[in-house]
Protein backbone atom coordinates (compact mmCIF):
# COMPACT_ATOMS: atom_id res chain seq x y z
CA UNK A 1 0.00 0.00 0.00
CA UNK A 2 2.93 2.34 0.41
CA UNK A 3 3.01 2.91 -3.33
CA UNK A 4 -0.59 4.08 -3.18
CA UNK A 5 0.16 6.95 -0.81
CA UNK A 6 0.71 10.42 -2.13
CA UNK A 7 3.93 12.09 -1.17
CA UNK A 8 3.32 15.53 0.36
CA UNK A 9 5.16 18.44 -1.20
CA UNK A 10 6.35 21.18 1.12
CA UNK A 11 6.28 24.72 -0.11
CA UNK A 12 8.53 26.51 2.30
CA UNK A 13 11.29 26.05 4.78
CA UNK A 14 9.07 25.56 7.83
CA UNK A 15 10.59 22.20 8.68
CA UNK A 16 8.33 21.55 11.64
CA UNK A 17 5.22 22.06 9.58
CA UNK A 18 4.92 18.86 7.68
CA UNK A 19 2.21 16.64 6.29
CA UNK A 20 3.02 13.06 7.22
CA UNK A 21 1.05 10.00 6.23
CA UNK A 22 -0.25 8.20 9.35
CA UNK A 23 -2.68 5.51 8.31
CA UNK A 24 -5.39 4.49 5.90
CA UNK A 25 -8.93 3.27 6.47
CA UNK A 26 -9.65 0.20 4.43
CA UNK A 27 -13.27 -0.37 3.58
CA UNK A 28 -13.82 -2.99 0.94
CA UNK A 29 -17.60 -2.50 0.98
CA UNK A 30 -17.52 1.25 0.40
CA UNK A 31 -17.96 2.47 -3.16
CA UNK A 32 -17.78 6.23 -2.65
CA UNK A 33 -16.94 8.60 0.16
CA UNK A 34 -19.49 11.35 0.59
CA UNK A 35 -17.95 12.85 3.73
CA UNK A 36 -15.53 12.07 6.55
CA UNK A 37 -15.22 13.48 10.05
CA UNK A 38 -14.02 12.70 13.57
CA UNK A 39 -16.06 12.21 16.73
CA UNK A 40 -15.22 11.56 20.38
CA UNK A 41 -16.71 8.20 21.30
CA UNK A 42 -16.87 6.67 24.75
CA UNK A 43 -17.42 2.95 25.29
CA UNK A 44 -16.66 0.86 28.39
CA UNK A 45 -15.21 3.92 30.11
CA UNK A 46 -12.70 4.55 27.32
CA UNK A 47 -13.00 7.83 25.41
CA UNK A 48 -11.34 7.81 21.98
CA UNK A 49 -11.23 10.00 18.92
CA UNK A 50 -12.95 7.94 16.24
CA UNK A 51 -13.37 8.49 12.51
CA UNK A 52 -16.78 8.69 10.83
CA UNK A 53 -17.14 7.91 7.14
CA UNK A 54 -20.30 8.52 5.13
CA UNK A 55 -21.37 6.83 1.93
CA UNK A 56 -24.62 7.58 0.10
CA UNK A 57 -26.67 5.09 2.11
CA UNK A 58 -24.64 4.33 5.23
CA UNK A 59 -22.47 5.96 7.89
CA UNK A 60 -19.67 4.01 9.63
CA UNK A 61 -17.85 4.61 12.92
CA UNK A 62 -14.17 3.55 13.11
CA UNK A 63 -12.04 3.24 16.23
CA UNK A 64 -8.24 3.04 16.48
CA UNK A 65 -7.13 -0.53 17.19
CA UNK A 66 -3.38 -0.10 16.71
CA UNK A 67 -1.17 2.79 15.52
CA UNK A 68 -1.80 2.01 11.85
CA UNK A 69 -5.02 0.08 12.09
CA UNK A 70 -8.66 1.07 12.29
CA UNK A 71 -11.61 -1.20 13.00
CA UNK A 72 -15.22 -0.57 12.08
CA UNK A 73 -17.37 -0.35 15.23
CA UNK A 74 -20.79 0.06 13.67
CA UNK A 75 -22.52 1.01 10.42
CA UNK A 76 -25.84 2.84 10.43
CA UNK A 77 -27.90 1.97 7.38
CA UNK A 78 -29.90 4.94 6.12
CA UNK A 79 -33.03 4.92 3.99
CA UNK A 80 -33.54 5.88 0.39
CA UNK A 81 -32.53 9.52 0.80
CA UNK A 82 -28.77 9.86 0.16
CA UNK A 83 -26.39 11.21 2.80
CA UNK A 84 -24.99 14.61 1.76
CA UNK A 85 -22.71 15.53 4.65
CA UNK A 86 -21.64 14.85 8.22
CA UNK A 87 -22.31 17.79 10.55
CA UNK A 88 -19.71 17.78 13.35
CA UNK A 89 -21.13 18.65 16.78
CA UNK A 90 -18.29 20.34 18.66
CA UNK A 91 -17.27 19.13 22.11
CA UNK A 92 -19.78 16.27 22.14
CA UNK A 93 -19.37 12.59 22.75
CA UNK A 94 -21.25 9.67 21.14
CA UNK A 95 -23.34 11.96 18.90
CA UNK A 96 -23.09 12.23 15.10
CA UNK A 97 -25.30 14.51 13.01
CA UNK A 98 -25.82 13.92 9.30
CA UNK A 99 -27.63 15.75 6.50
CA UNK A 100 -29.55 13.81 3.86
CA UNK A 101 -31.16 14.92 0.64
CA UNK A 102 -31.09 15.16 -3.13
CA UNK A 103 -28.96 18.18 -4.14
CA UNK A 104 -30.34 20.16 -1.17
CA UNK A 105 -30.65 18.98 2.41
CA UNK A 106 -34.12 17.62 3.10
CA UNK A 107 -33.49 15.93 6.43
CA UNK A 108 -31.14 16.09 9.42
CA UNK A 109 -30.63 12.94 11.48
CA UNK A 110 -28.80 12.16 14.70
CA UNK A 111 -26.82 8.93 15.01
CA UNK A 112 -26.04 7.76 18.52
CA UNK A 113 -25.44 4.93 20.93
CA UNK A 114 -28.01 4.39 23.64
CA UNK A 115 -26.61 2.81 26.81
CA UNK A 116 -30.17 2.39 28.14
CA UNK A 117 -30.83 -0.54 25.85
CA UNK A 118 -27.26 -1.09 24.60
CA UNK A 119 -28.02 -0.30 20.97
CA UNK A 120 -27.01 2.03 18.16
CA UNK A 121 -29.87 4.29 17.09
CA UNK A 122 -30.84 7.06 14.72
CA UNK A 123 -33.45 9.77 15.17
CA UNK A 124 -34.95 12.48 12.98
CA UNK A 125 -34.02 16.03 14.02
CA UNK A 126 -35.51 18.19 11.27
CA UNK A 127 -37.04 18.08 7.79
CA UNK A 128 -37.51 20.85 5.19
CA UNK A 129 -35.69 22.64 2.38
CA UNK A 130 -32.56 23.21 4.43
CA UNK A 131 -30.04 25.59 2.86
CA UNK A 132 -27.32 25.71 5.52
CA UNK A 133 -26.49 23.91 8.75
CA UNK A 134 -23.74 24.11 11.37
CA UNK A 135 -23.01 22.30 14.63
CA UNK A 136 -22.45 24.79 17.47
CA UNK A 137 -20.89 24.55 20.93
CA UNK A 138 -22.95 23.12 23.79
CA UNK A 139 -24.62 20.41 21.69
CA UNK A 140 -26.54 22.82 19.47
CA UNK A 141 -27.29 22.89 15.77
CA UNK A 142 -28.30 25.92 13.67
CA UNK A 143 -30.03 25.56 10.32
CA UNK A 144 -31.76 27.78 7.79
CA UNK A 145 -34.62 26.53 5.67
CA UNK A 146 -36.97 27.99 3.07
CA UNK A 147 -40.69 27.38 2.89
CA UNK A 148 -42.43 29.32 0.10
CA UNK A 149 -41.33 32.94 0.63
CA UNK A 150 -40.30 32.59 4.24
CA UNK A 151 -36.84 31.75 5.54
CA UNK A 152 -36.58 30.14 8.96
CA UNK A 153 -33.39 30.11 11.04
CA UNK A 154 -33.58 27.73 13.98
CA UNK A 155 -31.26 26.55 16.74
CA UNK A 156 -31.95 23.08 18.15
CA UNK A 157 -30.15 21.78 21.23
CA UNK A 158 -29.57 18.18 22.27
CA UNK A 159 -29.32 16.50 25.64
CA UNK A 160 -26.33 14.24 26.36
CA UNK A 161 -28.46 11.27 25.41
CA UNK A 162 -29.34 12.86 22.08
CA UNK A 163 -32.88 13.99 22.79
CA UNK A 164 -33.60 17.24 20.95
CA UNK A 165 -34.95 20.05 23.07
CA UNK A 166 -37.16 22.97 22.12
CA UNK A 167 -35.62 25.00 19.30
CA UNK A 168 -35.05 28.75 19.28
CA UNK A 169 -35.87 30.83 16.22
CA UNK A 170 -33.52 33.57 15.00
CA UNK A 171 -34.81 36.56 13.05
CA UNK A 172 -34.29 35.67 9.36
CA UNK A 173 -32.71 38.13 6.90
CA UNK A 174 -34.33 38.61 3.48
CA UNK A 175 -31.33 37.03 1.74
CA UNK A 176 -30.85 33.26 1.74
CA UNK A 177 -28.23 32.08 4.23
CA UNK A 178 -25.55 29.85 2.66
CA UNK A 179 -23.26 29.21 5.65
CA UNK A 180 -22.88 29.88 9.37
CA UNK A 181 -19.91 30.46 11.71
CA UNK A 182 -19.79 30.94 15.48
CA UNK A 183 -17.96 34.09 16.55
CA UNK A 184 -15.02 33.19 18.78
CA UNK A 185 -14.55 35.66 21.59
CA UNK A 186 -18.23 36.69 21.71
CA UNK A 187 -20.26 34.01 23.46
CA UNK A 188 -23.69 34.58 21.96
CA UNK A 189 -22.77 35.88 18.50
CA UNK A 190 -23.47 33.91 15.32
CA UNK A 191 -22.49 34.94 11.81
CA UNK A 192 -23.84 33.94 8.41
CA UNK A 193 -22.99 34.58 4.76
CA UNK A 194 -25.81 35.08 2.26
CA UNK A 195 -26.48 34.38 -1.41
CA UNK A 196 -26.21 38.14 -2.07
CA UNK A 197 -22.69 38.20 -0.62
CA UNK A 198 -23.55 39.80 2.69
CA UNK A 199 -22.55 38.96 6.24
CA UNK A 200 -25.25 38.93 8.90
CA UNK A 201 -24.78 38.79 12.67
CA UNK A 202 -27.27 37.41 15.20
CA UNK A 203 -27.56 37.44 18.96
CA UNK A 204 -28.11 33.73 19.72
CA UNK A 205 -29.57 34.48 23.15
CA UNK A 206 -32.25 36.95 22.02
CA UNK A 207 -32.64 35.84 18.38
CA UNK A 208 -32.05 39.44 17.20
CA UNK A 209 -30.61 40.11 13.76
CA UNK A 210 -27.99 42.70 14.68
CA UNK A 211 -26.30 43.75 11.47
CA UNK A 212 -25.99 43.14 7.75
CA UNK A 213 -22.71 44.03 6.04
CA UNK A 214 -21.85 43.69 2.36
CA UNK A 215 -18.67 41.82 1.45
CA UNK A 216 -18.17 43.45 -1.96
CA UNK A 217 -18.61 42.43 -5.56
CA UNK A 218 -15.10 41.15 -6.35
CA UNK A 219 -15.65 37.77 -4.74
CA UNK A 220 -19.21 36.52 -5.24
CA UNK A 221 -20.86 33.74 -3.21
CA UNK A 222 -18.38 33.91 -0.35
CA UNK A 223 -18.71 31.19 2.28
CA UNK A 224 -17.81 31.89 5.93
CA UNK A 225 -15.64 29.28 7.65
CA UNK A 226 -14.53 30.98 10.85
CA UNK A 227 -15.07 34.26 12.68
CA UNK A 228 -13.44 35.83 15.70
CA UNK A 229 -13.69 39.15 17.47
CA UNK A 230 -10.51 40.95 18.48
CA UNK A 231 -9.94 44.57 19.56
CA UNK A 232 -13.43 45.61 18.48
CA UNK A 233 -13.08 44.16 14.99
CA UNK A 234 -14.72 41.09 13.54
CA UNK A 235 -12.29 38.93 11.54
CA UNK A 236 -14.00 36.57 9.09
CA UNK A 237 -12.34 33.74 7.12
CA UNK A 238 -14.09 33.32 3.77
CA UNK A 239 -13.65 30.97 0.87
CA UNK A 240 -14.43 32.01 -2.66
CA UNK A 241 -15.49 29.11 -4.85
CA UNK A 242 -16.38 31.49 -7.69
CA UNK A 243 -13.53 33.97 -7.44
CA UNK A 244 -11.78 35.06 -10.62
CA UNK A 245 -8.01 34.95 -10.85
CA UNK A 246 -6.35 38.35 -10.61
CA UNK A 247 -2.80 39.54 -11.15
CA UNK A 248 -2.49 41.03 -7.69
CA UNK A 249 -3.91 38.15 -5.67
CA UNK A 250 -3.53 35.14 -7.93
CA UNK A 251 -6.23 32.56 -7.49
CA UNK A 252 -7.57 33.16 -3.98
CA UNK A 253 -8.94 30.19 -2.05
CA UNK A 254 -9.36 31.82 1.37
CA UNK A 255 -9.45 35.44 2.48
CA UNK A 256 -9.46 37.03 5.93
CA UNK A 257 -11.48 40.24 6.11
CA UNK A 258 -11.73 42.59 9.10
CA UNK A 259 -15.14 44.21 9.63
CA UNK A 260 -16.04 46.99 11.98
CA UNK A 261 -19.48 45.76 13.07
CA UNK A 262 -20.43 49.26 14.23
CA UNK A 263 -19.93 50.91 10.83
CA UNK A 264 -20.13 47.87 8.50
CA UNK A 265 -16.86 49.02 6.88
CA UNK A 266 -14.32 46.36 6.05
CA UNK A 267 -10.81 45.81 4.81
CA UNK A 268 -9.02 42.76 3.43
CA UNK A 269 -6.35 41.45 5.81
CA UNK A 270 -4.71 38.55 4.01
CA UNK A 271 -5.19 36.39 0.91
CA UNK A 272 -4.42 32.69 0.74
CA UNK A 273 -3.98 31.90 -2.92
CA UNK A 274 -3.28 28.71 -4.80
CA UNK A 275 0.43 27.86 -5.04
CA UNK A 276 2.21 29.74 -7.84
CA UNK A 277 2.15 27.83 -11.09
CA UNK A 278 -0.45 25.41 -9.78
CA UNK A 279 -3.49 25.13 -12.00
CA UNK A 280 -6.91 24.50 -10.54
CA UNK A 281 -9.61 26.13 -8.51
CA UNK A 282 -10.84 25.85 -4.96
CA UNK A 283 -13.49 23.11 -4.78
CA UNK A 284 -14.22 22.59 -1.10
CA UNK A 285 -12.36 22.98 2.14
CA UNK A 286 -12.30 23.43 5.88
CA UNK A 287 -10.70 25.83 8.35
CA UNK A 288 -9.44 24.97 11.82
CA UNK A 289 -7.80 27.65 13.93
CA UNK A 290 -5.23 29.31 11.64
CA UNK A 291 -5.04 26.38 9.21
CA UNK A 292 -7.07 25.98 6.04
CA UNK A 293 -7.21 22.97 3.76
CA UNK A 294 -8.93 22.62 0.41
CA UNK A 295 -9.43 20.19 -2.43
CA UNK A 296 -8.47 21.78 -5.75
CA UNK A 297 -10.02 21.00 -9.12
CA UNK A 298 -6.67 19.42 -10.07
CA UNK A 299 -7.42 16.66 -7.56
CA UNK A 300 -4.74 17.86 -5.12
CA UNK A 301 -5.16 19.00 -1.51
CA UNK A 302 -3.53 22.25 -0.43
CA UNK A 303 -2.91 23.45 3.13
CA UNK A 304 -2.44 27.12 4.05
CA UNK A 305 -1.29 28.95 7.13
CA UNK A 306 -3.86 31.75 7.25
CA UNK A 307 -1.66 33.99 9.39
CA UNK A 308 1.11 33.84 6.79
CA UNK A 309 -1.31 33.70 3.85
CA UNK A 310 0.92 31.05 2.40
CA UNK A 311 0.44 27.52 1.10
CA UNK A 312 2.54 25.29 3.35
CA UNK A 313 1.86 21.81 1.96
CA UNK A 314 0.40 20.19 -1.11
CA UNK A 315 -0.84 16.64 -1.45
CA UNK A 316 -0.95 15.75 -5.14
CA UNK A 317 -3.43 13.18 -6.43
CA UNK A 318 -1.91 9.74 -5.97
CA UNK A 319 -1.88 6.69 -8.22
CA UNK A 320 -5.21 5.66 -6.68
CA UNK A 321 -6.89 8.83 -7.92
CA UNK A 322 -7.84 12.41 -7.11
CA UNK A 323 -8.69 13.66 -3.65
CA UNK A 324 -12.36 14.52 -3.19
CA UNK A 325 -12.61 15.54 0.47
CA UNK A 326 -10.48 17.17 3.13
CA UNK A 327 -11.35 17.64 6.81
CA UNK A 328 -9.41 18.59 9.94
CA UNK A 329 -9.48 16.15 12.82
CA UNK A 330 -11.24 17.28 16.04
CA UNK A 331 -8.19 16.45 18.17
CA UNK A 332 -4.64 17.61 17.44
CA UNK A 333 -3.74 18.65 13.93
CA UNK A 334 -4.72 15.58 11.93
CA UNK A 335 -5.92 15.86 8.38
CA UNK A 336 -8.46 13.45 6.87
CA UNK A 337 -8.22 13.08 3.10
CA UNK A 338 -10.88 11.19 1.17
CA UNK A 339 -10.82 9.87 -2.38
CA UNK A 340 -13.77 9.32 -4.67
CA UNK A 341 -13.23 5.55 -4.50
CA UNK A 342 -14.00 5.53 -0.76
CA UNK A 343 -10.41 5.43 0.47
CA UNK A 344 -9.65 7.69 3.46
CA UNK A 345 -6.09 8.55 4.52
CA UNK A 346 -5.03 10.20 7.75
CA UNK A 347 -2.14 12.67 7.77
CA UNK A 348 -0.45 14.56 10.57
CA UNK A 349 0.22 18.23 9.89
Amino acid sequence: NEAEQSTPVLFDDLAEENLQFVSKLKDSSSSCAVDVSTVWWEAAGCRELCVVTACENSVSLWKPLAPDHWGKVYTWQLGEIPVIQIIPLLDTCNLICIALGNLEIGEIRLLLYSSENDSFKQSLVKTGNIKAVLGLKDRRLVSSSRSMQEQEVEVVSFSETGRSKHGQTLMPPEETILAFAEVEGVKDALLGTTAMNSIVIWNLKTGQLLKKMHIGYSYPASICHRAYSDSGLLFVVLSHPHAKESESCGNPAFRVIAFNPKTARSTGVIFSSLPPGHAGRYMEGEVKDALAAAVLSSGAIAVWDLLLGRCTALLPPGPAGSWALVRWSAGGSGLLAGRGDGGVCLYRY
Binding site: V186, L210, S229, S231, A258, P261, K262, T263
Partner: peptide
Protein backbone atom coordinates in the same frame (compact mmCIF):
# COMPACT_ATOMS: atom_id res chain seq x y z
CA UNK B 1 -5.99 49.00 9.17
CA UNK B 2 -6.51 52.28 10.95
CA UNK B 3 -9.56 53.65 12.73
CA UNK B 4 -10.04 56.14 9.91
CA UNK B 5 -10.49 53.35 7.34
CA UNK B 6 -13.05 51.43 9.32
CA UNK B 7 -14.64 54.21 11.37
CA UNK B 8 -14.91 54.39 15.15
CA UNK B 9 -14.25 51.01 16.76
CA UNK B 10 -16.03 49.79 19.89
CA UNK B 11 -14.83 46.91 22.05
CA UNK B 12 -18.46 46.38 23.13
CA UNK B 13 -19.87 46.22 19.60
CA UNK B 14 -21.99 43.15 20.33
CA UNK B 15 -23.71 44.63 23.38
CA UNK B 16 -24.20 47.98 21.62
CA UNK B 17 -25.71 46.42 18.48
CA UNK B 18 -27.94 44.22 20.67
CA UNK B 19 -29.31 47.27 22.47
CA UNK B 20 -29.88 49.13 19.20
CA UNK B 21 -31.49 46.28 17.17
CA UNK B 22 -35.23 45.60 17.27
CA UNK B 23 -36.15 42.86 19.76
Amino acid sequence: CSDSDLGPISLNWFEELSSEAPP
